[in-house]
Structures are given as C-alpha cells and as structure tokens.
Design a protein around this nucleic acid. Structure first.
Length: 304
DNA sequence: AAGCGTAGCAACCGCCCGTAT
DNA sequence: CATACGGGCGGTTGCTACGCT
C-alpha cells in the first residue's frame, strides 16, 4: 500500500492547490464522492480527495459527506422530542454540538448548531437577554421545556386515539426525558452511545420511518419552526436503548414540571393580568406557530 | 411586480488535539 | 522529543428562498 493507502499517486503540487474548487457542490462532485467512498471507504480525506479526482480539500469532502451525503443523515424538521433533547443536553454541555448530536441519530452537529443559532438564539435576542444568561436558561427550563413536554403528550394522545381505531401498533409516546430538577439531571448518562455506534440505530429508523418527503408534511405545524411527528423516531430509539428508565411515563415528569413552574419565583400563582402587558409584545403570539412556545409569560419570566 | 429584509442552511475557516514519523 | 499531518470541533460567512411592503 502506498503512503496514502489508496493506491493513487499523491499530488500535492501547488498547481493542484491553485485550482481547488470552493463553494456549493455539484451533483457530479457528489456522485464522485459517494461512489468513491462506496468503493474505498472514508477517512484519509486529503488523499481521498486527490484519488477521487475531486478538486476539493479533504476537509471539504469530509464535511460534505458527514453533513449531507452520508446515507443515514436525517434531513427535515426537528421533532419536538429532538428539540427537548437539544435543550436539555445543551444545558448540560453547552455548545458541544458533536456530543449533543450523538444523542440525535442522523442529525449532524452542524444541523443542531444551526438550529440553536437560528431558533433558540433568535428567541433570546427577542427576549433581550443573553442566550447564556441565567434568566434565559431558567426560561427554557421552566417554560419552554415543560411546554415541549405538554405538546409531545398532546401529540401522543392524539396519535394513540387514532391508533385505537386504525391500528394496533404498540409504539408509545414516550420520550427519553428526565424531569428538570435543578441539578440538571444526568439524563441518559448510562446510555451514551459509543462513538460510531449510534449510527446503526439511526440508519434503521431513518430508513423505515423517515424520509424527507414525509418529514415535510407529517404532523401539524407546530413549535419552533418544526413539525411534529406524533410518534417520533426518537421515542422508539430511546425505548429501544433503555427500556426501563427515562422512558417511563410523562405523568411523573409533568408533575415535576408543574411544581417546577412555580419554583423559581412562584409567579404563576400571582394572578397576573397578561392583558395588561405591553401590546407591543404581540409578536410573541402572532401567526407564526413556530413561536408558540414563547408567549407573554416569557416576558414576565424574564422580568422576574 | 419589484425591491428589500430576514431566516435558514450549506460550506468554509481557524484552532486544537492526537497520532505517526 | 520535535515536527508534520489528519481529523474534529466550534464559530462564522455567504448564498438562497421566502415573506413583507
């Protein structure tokens, strides 16, 4: 095997570097990369790029493959469960996108990062606070995440109702989410996928239950710019991974959420007159269903 | 219909770390 | 031990589509 391990002449001449392509990938380039990896496998990206005849940097090839061309890449709207997981994991690890992505089969760190920056940070900006501030984190924890749970429940209930009349599917609307309890529970600590192993599960589920086509139309428009899959792939995934914990039931978590809702300031019990709040904040409850998780309560929360 | 602003996302950049030589 | 290289990561940029005026 040659120095590149790929049986091709290494060409690192400056002339080659001169005409390296940049910018959007063409269909032809995609096909070349896919075919080459199918035949030779991935890795050694610089030599891969040369041997495949792609006038791209190795990094560019790697990124294109991992974020776009990989067969198990899951494209389309992020489900409620995934949103919940992202919020929870981000609260634990911060901007460790690749680590967070390990828990979201088929999702890339880039996609999660984009989601965070475009959706979550947008709301932080609208609430006029720093995304890393305690206020914003509390708002997420005590308002947004409970709402997500409620919405997941609602979607699950609707789904199960439909199922009773149409099918005997045993899929349940459980999610791998541990109630927020202040210490930022070490959710799923025991089910951290080993590197490179989580994809297998993701592939199977993506192929059987998720396609870009159905992802764009499934469920009702809801949440933060996403659409709900009443019974998510993720739920199945965690049910599979951990049958005895974290997938127990929503009732317990909701009880805790209801408690947590009043724990920081107790403001939910204060009989607030939301009507009196500045009408200028109506952007929070406008027609954009993506913002439904954020409403007038958030303003109050932020002002506590 | 045209122009403008914004959101979303693909791709790039620079830094860092681990490993091979 | 020092250096080079490959690869991963987080942050940033730029393009495109879409909505609003």
């Amino acid at each position: 095997m040659d120095v590149n391990g790929r049986g091709c002449i290494s060409g690192t001449s400056s002339e080659e570097e001169m005409d390296l392509r940049r910018g959007p990938w063409t269909v032809e380039e995609d096909l070349i990369l896919i075919n080459y990896i199918a035949n030779h496998g991935e890795g050694r990206w610089n030599s891969l790029a040369r041997c495949a005849g792609l006038k791209r940097t190795g990094k560019s090839c790697r990124l294109r493959w991992l974020n776009y061309l990989r067969p198990d890449v899951r494209r389309g709207n992020i489900t409620l469960e995934e949103q919940l997981l992202i919020l929870e994991l981000h609260s634990r690890w911060g901007n460790r996108w690749s680590k967070i992505a390990q828990y979201l089969p088929g999702r890339t760190d880039n996609e999660i990062k984009n989601y965070w920056r475009t959706r979550v940070q947008k709301h932080a900006k609208q609430l006029q606070c720093d995304v890393n501030s305690k206020q914003f984190k509390d708002t997420m924890r005590y308002l947004w995440m409970p709402r997500l749970v409620e919405r997941i429940q609602a979607a699950a209930a609707a789904s199960s109702t439909a199922n009773t009349t149409t099918t005997t599917t045993t899929t349940t609307a459980t999610v791998a989410y541990h109630p927020i309890n202040g210490d930022n529970s070490d959710i799923m600590a025991s089910q951290v996928p080993s590197a490179g192993s989580n994809n297998d599960v993701g592939i199977a589920q993506v192929n059987t239950s998720f396609t870009p086509e159905n992802s764009s139309t499934a469920g009702s428009s809801d949440s933060i710019g996403t659409q709900v899959s009443p019974v998510s792939d993720l739920a199945d995934y965690y049910t599979t991974l951990q049958p005895n914990s974290y997938v127990d039931n929503f009732q317990a978590s909701q009880v805790n959420y209801q408690e947590s809702l009043t724990s920081p300031t107790g403001y939910f019990n204060q009989g607030l007159d939301f009507q009196a709040i500045d009408q200028n904040n109506m952007w929070l409850v406008d027609g954009d269903t993506s913002d439904n998780l954020w409403n007038i309560e958030d303003i109050w929360f932020m002002r506590q």
